[in-house]
Simulated assay, not measured.
Amino acid sequence: MHILLTNDDGLQAQGLQILKEEMMDYARKVTVVAPAGQRSAASHSMTINRTLYCHEHPGATDQVREISVSGTPVDCVKMAMEYFLRDDRPDLIISGINDGYNLGSDVLYSGTVSAAMEGPYYQVPAMAVSMGTMTEDRCRET
């Protein structure tokens, strides 16, 4: 299985990094394409009038690859699907682990949820994951 991970809290976010480590036990390949920094409440916005900058982080292996994108969470999924993974499409997209719940009307503003909503557009199953209180212990319990 090949899993694409993203979020709206940025590539270095604790939840995303824990999710990456955990998914390595279940997937032959994990590709992380996430915003270069915090993009919470980006909703389903896309970058259209600015250049997107992408940076592939060192340390890639046959199993894990990490790329940061200067844009929104939706930009990250689009860049992954149309450029980075064009010839090696993922089997699943997971967006998160978001630091804070995405409940009720929050889903309308959530970059985490919006990134997952791109999955069906590319005919790839997707889900968004969030936690009310982000701690390493809680993430690993779930």
Rank of each mutant, 00 (worst) to 15 (best):
E66T: 09
I67W: 03
E56L: 09
I48S: 11
S43I: 03
D62H: 04
Y83D: 08
A27L: 00
G15C: 07
I18A: 00
S114T: 12
T47P: 03
N98G: 14
M24S: 00
N49E: 08
S43F: 04
T72D: 03
V64D: 07
E66V: 06
D88R: 13
A36R: 05
A80T: 08
H55W: 05
C139L: 15
V113P: 07
R65C: 11
R89W: 03
R138D: 00
E136Y: 01
S110T: 12
Y26R: 03
G59L: 05
H44M: 09
R50H: 07
L11H: 06
V124R: 12
Y109C: 09
L4Q: 04
A126Y: 01
E56G: 09
P125T: 11
R39M: 12
Q12P: 02
M117W: 08
G59K: 06
M46I: 15
S40M: 11
Y83R: 12
K78G: 09
T72C: 04
S40E: 15
S68G: 11
V129D: 04
D137M: 00
T72R: 05
G111R: 12
V77S: 11
G104Y: 09
L52F: 02
S68A: 14
G111L: 11
V77R: 13
T142W: 02
P58R: 11
R28C: 10
L108V: 14
V124Y: 12
E21I: 02
A34I: 05
S43Y: 09
C139Q: 06
Q14M: 14
L103P: 01
